[in-house]
Design a protein around this nucleic acid. Structure first.
Lengths: 366, 366
DNA sequence: ATGAAAGCGCTAACAC
DNA sequence: GTGTTAGCGCTTTCAT
């Protein structure tokens, strides 16, 4: 594929290869302008394209980075992380090797070896769901972790993950500020392998409830399989509650489950958000915005995370050897959150103090 | 990154580098078993990992392939194509460079240059929607085209695309065989840049209608923006038709538009499929299967297309220099297609011939 | 202001 | 059965 060599250019221009190299790489200005022009012209004339291989071998820097991910095919999020990483790679003239391992440890191992053999300048290890990297994955030093964090005790890897606790809090706050006090959480029931995001979001939910003087009612914390169906089933159980205990708002672990809640709610002839408010998580493409009504949700900052990881990998940004970088998950406001129906009382609010007032004085945002 | 060299292994094993190379690459068996073992042990002991760079430079084969795509982030289909391509690359010990160009010609150009500089063994040019590659894209010879086809007159590029005409026909046939005769097509209205798939699917639709002796009624061919909203609007117009002219089944350009049709239908208190049948296209992940009822649709064979392209790129499979390889789009049966309501007459069927009988005798499939 | 030559790490032709 | 060596295409030190 790469036929014409630097020596061909040198011959054509009547100079040495050194000169050609110097000119083409804009190194030192000691070469006369006239020579420079001649070299450039010659290079263009013979159609010269340098061999990145030879250069890499010589310099021991390849301007390539390896990106290992567990699943690219099966998740709708992969793309945005890749796009972020790609964009900074391109801006810095790096090429990226993408390897999808399907979470297979043997494949992962082979991939790391192959990438090392390619002498990639940096390695990014990406997960498609916020999770912990098993301690037995043999990562080269200075690998950066994307959407995953090192196992306890493993150190030396910069990593970036979404701030799911803050996201859960933001979602809940959105509902509290709209005036709700009976706020349910539809959680995933995945058991071996419960996503770390699930606990974090739950934590955020409880925190805000507590801080708002709302008693955390376990009856309003339900579980379902992480899907439309699971969300629907869980929502049905919530709707089956006697009306004084029924929630006026539901925070769903993710958008897919939220669509299930939509189905359950509509099946009973209830309206969103007039009768019940819904907030999701993920801001999943083609899903959240296309519900009826469009779903208010919390966005995962995948693009930004991808950028961050690549910037750290390329040394453009300081990763901080050990701290896990948490990235904000912003609320995306659409039309599924409104004030609670007028007729509902607000019973399970504690009679306490300023908390209550603060949260009551907050205004809904449209 | 790659520190220890083959000469280190040679020294450790007390042999020459030739021997080491021969042993480690399983070349010739003239080396004594004893030496082989010694070399292997030495390699492991010093932690040797060959430099793919040096090998590539020497052999002028890198075992890498470049995959250029227009958009990876913004489409839910990218993943499956990548997965297919990846899987065969891995099985053949090749690594893939992924470059996303965002359809920017300058970026595309730079990407091709960069990949050529890397001396990739093959190049795949992938589009995320079935389309034609502009003739001015400067592709190296032997590039394989994935989900796109060469412009007229451009030759020498193997290419693979979904058989959208056959897919449109299959969708329509599914409806005809369920007993429908008033079958609408909700088409995309994209105008500059109308997807080539749209025309192909429409063709298939008309073909099957004609072959079944059903008159093609232009009133039943409506358009909308390619989204939930567009599908909803188009479906509403269809439902506004006086009842004798209203369709009993709708074929939608894609699943997203189909979900809009769902919304329109449900909003009128109609049921799917009892009152009206729906078939989509794409089998879009997290969408088609999660509708209520689950959407019958036509699947795009992205994974297989990805495999095909990589197989051709690696020379494992004959691409056929010029013929565009069309890949079948199978119908995925779920629950949105049923027989037409009993009370509807079947008026716009021609009184002709065997066609009619053939299509009437066909049985719905559940 | 320019050129000669070493060397990045490997494979393979050739010699012994 | 094993070793020597040229050379893949480039960058870079050192001379001139």
């Amino acid at each position: 594929m790469a036929r014409v060599r630097i020596s061909d250019v040198a011959a054509a221009a009547g100079v040495s290869v050194t000169t050609v190299s110097l000119v083409l790489n804009d190194v030192e200005s000691r070469i006369s302008q006239e020579t420079r022009d001649r070299v450039r012209a010659a290079a263009a004339a013979v159609g010269y394209a340098p061999s990145a291989l030879a250069r890499g071998l010589r310099q021991q820097r390849t301007k390539t980075v390896g990106l290992i991910s567990d699943q690219i095919a099966t998740t709708p999020f992969a793309g945005r992380m890749l796009a972020g990483a790609q964009d900074v790679a391109r801006a810095n003239e790096h090429l990226v090797f993408l390897v999808d391992t399907g979470s297979d440890a043997a494949v992962e191992d082979a991939a790391i070896r192959a990438l090392t053999a390619q002498q990639v300048d940096a390695l990014i290890y990406a997960a498609m769901w916020h999770r912990i990297v098993p301690a037995d994955v043999k990562l080269p030093a200075d690998t950066v972790l994307l959407d995953c964090r090192p196992a306890d005790g493993v150190t030396g890897f910069p990593s970036v993950v979404p701030d799911d606790r803050a996201g859960g809090a933001a979602a809940t706050r959105e509902l509290v500020e709209a005036g709700h006090t009976r706020i349910a959480y539809i959680d995933t029931d995945e058991d071996p392998g419960r996503p770390i995001a699930a606990d974090l979001r739950l934590e955020g939910y409880r925190e805000v409830l507590a801080a708002s003087g709302i008693v955390v009612d376990d009856e309003l914390h339900v579980h379902g399989e992480t899907s439309h169906r699971g969300g629907r089933g869980a929502a049905e159980r919530l709707l089956d509650l006697p009306s004084e205990r029924r929630p006026t708002a539901i925070f769903c672990f993710n958008d897919r489950m939220a669509t299930g809640a939509y189905t359950a709610i509509h099946a009973r002839g209830l309206r969103i958000p007039e009768d019940i408010s819904i907030i999701g998580y993920d801001d999943q493409q083609f899903i959240a915005a296309e519900q009826d009504p469009p779903l208010t949700t919390v966005a995962l900052p995948h693009y930004e995370m991808g950028r961050w990881a690549m910037e750290v990998a390329l040394g453009i940004r300081e990763g901080g050897e050990d701290a896990v970088h948490q990235m904000e998950c912003p609320v995306v406001r659409r039309d599924s959150v409104g004030p609670p129906p007028a007729h509902v009382a607000k019973p399970n609010r504690r009679r306490t103090s300023q908390h209550t007032e603060r949260s009551l004085s907050a205004t809904p945002d449209r």
